[in-house]
Design a protein around this nucleic acid. Structure first.
Length: 864
RNA sequence: GCCCGAGUGGCGGAACUGGUAUACGCGCACGACUUAAAAUCGUGUCUCGUAAGGGAUGUGGGUUCGAUUCCCACCUCGGGCACCA
């Protein structure tokens, strides 16, 4: 791959970039950009007050994680996009809040701290300082007076406070779950630190370790999280991803009786009440969850998740226990994703010695355990209907199990038939359609209709240092006691080593001074919770804090929240990679806060859009190790912030992944320079006009045709462009917005002269994209106020209508000619003109015209 | 494996709701200006063909007067899969 040195200054801009004072005023981006950034800051142009009269608008970007790598060009892409929207809103008269902060807790900082022995606090300070400086150099309209940081005790006090409220409402609870464990390093690992089943640091194969952890009961909100998606304006694909993640499905819970060899060899009576009492283990049935109760007559075996608790209860009765035990052990260390990813080859083991009874047929079926059944979904057990389920079909083929067809319409010898259809081989339910059969059969077998969610509760504990301490105290006498609200925040203490302990606990566990405390209830000896919160905690509510960042009594004042958040955040843009976790978690927290009457809306974000990533040249990820990263600082120095902004918006469709190509930036720079030269031309003309009182400029150049009114044609284009830019910004079609501004600029160049008022309108629509150069030219044209506080221009309806329209003429769908007609020409007239056309005549002659299709103002198709 | 996207010139991409495929930009070629170069401006630039005309939007099929757009099947690439954020 070509390795382009992006720090090399292209000869095209050397002259201007050097900033020599010449007779002709050169475009010196560094001077202009520094100048206006300082002016805006001094005048507090982007700072807003709570309570100002008028409409409000809150534009939100995902606040960055201040990594040591510095600002990525990807940050600039998404920030510029929202910067453009908020600047437009400001010009439309809204009181605009465009805030910024730092999502600064997290693993990379902690790992760096461990490696270098530097305090995470210090690293965070260094990194945020770099990020702040870099962001400011791009000219974003952030309100820096509201900057927040999740690692600031004044901030995480409220993160902890929310957790306490959740605990009070029973949404925070403790449960045993497993964590990744490296037996060699003796530390718990994040999923990311486990690469192909091995510890990222030492290469040892990882295992799982069961730990008691804090959980948040997000599943209690599953239904509302699903239903309320109807209320918000998210991109459709985002809604779909959220819905699929929540995974709501209506189905049936049906019990299958378990019988053992012992019992049925002595002559069991299926369905006999006596038999029920005979099972000494008390586990005489297994519940399955199915969305296809209509296929139950075809259920030829039952499959349990290997973790299913019922299995160990039957230990003594299962005749191949050794084999079963070995299989369970083998499965245990795999992640769900790996279990399902094992392409095609499904594995499983039969539980010999026990059987289940199909409640519909009354027949005996075998019981298996297999890794394709997940303990965490449904009931952890399925009835297998190989004829009508793909996975069951594969499994049945492999282990030679019966495949019984109960829905007609497929060819089950070849593959499973998974559609709904008409029942067969199903006793008295034959000939019913699936939909009706589901409820009837469920009732018949004594099952019940239930709603299940794929969504699982949120594992909220981390055995790490660099996170918010969970504000809980363990007392021998009183049990788990929450830290009283008045004692918040529970501060992160300074430690010597940030390394997790070899017992699997957080580094906080070894600071006895901090751990040992007194019980708030009884005053006796007690210990603090040493687990910390995940990174998601601080980012689940940060947007609220921007409304009132320094409040010491509440997470944000009621008045401030009502002022800014009466609709929630108006527009939130972020990465597609956050659509399932962060977005769902913060919606959950927001709904909880709504129930507490802390926030005025039930949804945090009115509108959510997403951006694509920026990859390096060749479509690979930018990474330090490959050496293909791009430092925005270099681009700003060489080309300027305005050029960088234009380039990043022009690079490709905003919602799609794009590749960075430094060679192409020059195109954006040329565009900016053309604007600059036009600006000079307009201001020179202004100067002349003032001196000589000269009359209106008469255009020269290519448009000397007497009938061609160039200035009116340019105005048509200008007004069309104003309309298009407005629409394109709203639909985030920045790349086409810029291309149409390029078209306009090219035309204005040809015109040799432009009316000042027209040029100013153009500057205004360019201003959100390139705020510095437009401000410079604007104020050089004797404007006193900032262009960013000017009124967004209105396009004129009368000016955007073309009088003459070109219509393509097709014969049998192929374009053969083009005719020009007046705007109001009648259909019949157009048809006649088309047939008379020279080119068309030769195609049509001696042929029978079957049909003529006319699409007004576009196309005419003659079918022969 | 499951869920969500994407695939168009040498390259980034455009095309409204099914209506002239390749706008805009990069690159390249030629020309103007210049002692020269850079910058700038102009012209050309999907492909086969002298032309008439034909072919081309990942692949194969379908619907339609007409398909980049709709339907079916497949291939490739990207994002997510719950402890990276």
């Amino acid at each position: 791959m070509k390795n382009y040195n992006h720090t090399k200054i292209p000869s095209a801009i050397k002259k201007a970039g050097a900033g020599k004072e010449k007779k002709v005023k050169e475009y010196n981006h560094l001077k202009i950009e520094h100048k206006w950034q300082k002016v805006w800051e001094d005048k507090k142009l982007y700072e807003v007050k709570n309570g100002t009269k008028g409409k409000t608008f809150v534009g939100l970007i995902e606040f960055p994680y201040p990594s040591g790598a510095g600002l990525h060009v990807g940050h600039i892409r998404s920030n510029t996009a929202m910067d453009i929207i908020t600047r437009k809103r400001r010009m439309e008269g809204f009181n605009v809040l465009y805030p910024i902060g730092w999502d600064a807790f997290g693993l990379p900082t902690e790992n760096y701290a461990i490696k270098m022995g530097i305090q995470p606090q210090k690293i965070t300070k260094t990194n945020t300082d770099v990020f702040r400086k870099q962001l400011k150099s791009i000219g974003f309209g952030f309100d820096w007076s509201r900057e927040i940081n999740t690692t600031d005790p004044g901030y995480y006090k409220w993160t902890q406070w929310i957790f306490l409220q959740m605990y009070k409402k029973g949404l925070a609870y403790k449960a045993k779950t497993s964590i990744n464990w490296c037996p060699s390093c003796k530390i718990g690992l994040a999923n990311e630190e486990v690469v192909a089943g091995e510890c990222e640091r030492c290469g040892t194969e990882t295992t799982k370790k069961v730990k008691e952890q804090w959980m948040l009961a997000i599943t209690k909100y599953a239904d509302r999280l699903d239903k309320d998606l109807d209320k918000v304006n998210y991109l459709e694909k985002i809604k779909i991803q959220q819905r699929n993640w929540i995974g709501k499905s209506e189905g049936s819970e049906i019990s299958f009786k378990i019988i053992t060899d012992k019992i049925f060899s002595s002559g069991p009576q299926v369905n006999s009440p006596e038999w029920l009492g005979k099972d000494i283990l008390g586990n005489n049935f297994v519940k399955v969850f199915t969305t296809r109760a209509d296929t139950i007559f075809g259920a030829t075996y039952v499959v349990l998740a290997p973790e299913h608790p019922i299995i160990t209860n039957y230990k003594l009765l299962i005749t191949n226990w050794k084999e079963v035990e070995a299989y369970i052990k083998q499965v245990k260390d795999k992640k769900d994703i790996e279990r399902m990813a094992e392409d095609k080859e499904k594995t499983g083991v039969e539980l010999k010695g026990i059987k289940a009874i199909n409640p519909a047929t009354g027949g005996e079926v075998s019981v298996w355990i297999a890794d394709y059944v997940l303990a965490t979904y449904g009931t952890g057990a399925v009835m297998a209907v190989p004829a009508h389920d793909e996975r069951d079909f594969e499994f049945a083929k492999k282990y030679n199990l019966e495949i019984k067809e109960v829905i007609s319409g497929g060819n089950i010898l070849e593959k499973s038939f998974t559609d709904d259809g008409i029942l067969m081989n199903s006793g008295k339910y034959n000939d019913l359609i699936s939909e009706d059969a589901r409820s009837k059969i469920t009732e018949f077998v004594g099952g019940k209709i239930v709603t299940k969610y794929k969504l699982r509760d949120w594992v909220f504990s981390r055995q790490r240092y660099w996170g918010e301490p969970i504000p809980m105290i363990h007392c021998d006498k009183c049990g788990i006691v929450p830290v009283p609200e008045k004692d918040l925040p529970v501060l992160l203490p300074k430690v010597k080593s940030y390394k997790p302990t070899d017992s699997g606990e957080s580094p906080l566990a070894i600071i006895s001074k901090w751990v040992n405390t007194t019980c708030p209830t009884c005053g006796g000896k007690a210990k603090r919770e040493t687990d910390t919160m995940p990174n998601w905690a601080g980012s689940s509510w940060y947007y609220l804090r921007y409304t009132d960042p320094n409040n010491k009594k509440e997470l944000a004042g009621k008045k401030a929240l009502r002022y800014w958040m009466k609709n929630g955040v108006d527009w939130y843009n972020g990465g597609m990679e956050h659509t399932t976790l962060h977005l769902l978690y913060s919606r959950f927290w927001h709904k909880f806060l709504y129930d507490l009457k802390v926030v005025p809306t039930s949804e945090p974000y009115m509108k959510r859009t997403s951006h694509g990533m920026i990859l390096a040249l060749g479509g690979v990820k930018m990474s330090k190790s490959i050496g293909n990263t791009v430092d925005p600082k270099d681009i700003v120095n060489i080309y300027g912030a305005d050029t960088l902004r234009i380039y990043e918006m022009f690079i490709g469709p905003f919602d799609q992944t794009v590749s960075w190509n430094t060679e192409s930036i020059i195109g954006s720079r040329r565009f900016i320079e053309k604007v600059w030269r036009l600006g000079l031309k307009v201001s020179e003309k202004e100067a002349k006009k003032n001196n000589q009182n000269s009359s209106r400029f008469i255009p020269e150049g290519p448009y000397t045709d007497k009938n061609f009114d160039y200035s009116s044609s340019l105005q048509t284009l200008l007004h069309k462009t104003i309309k298009k830019i407005g629409e394109d910004i709203e639909s985030m079609s920045y790349n086409t917005a810029i291309s149409s501004m390029m078209v306009l600029v090219n035309e204005m160049e040809k015109a040799e002269s432009i009316e000042e008022k027209d040029f100013k309108m153009f500057l205004q629509i360019l201003a959100p994209f390139a705020p510095h150069i437009t401000e410079e030219i604007w104020q050089s044209l004797k404007e006193k106020k900032s262009i960013h506080k000017s009124i967004w221009p209105k396009w004129d309806k009368k000016k955007i209508i073309d009088d003459i329209i070109k219509i393509a003429v097709q014969v049998n769908g192929k374009v053969r000619a083009e005719i020009t007609v007046g705007r109001d020409t009648e259909e019949e007239e157009v048809k006649k003109m088309a047939q008379k056309d020279k080119n068309i005549a030769s195609w049509v002659e001696n042929k029978e015209i079957k049909r003529i299709i006319y699409v007004k103002g576009r196309i005419i198709n003659i079918v022969v």
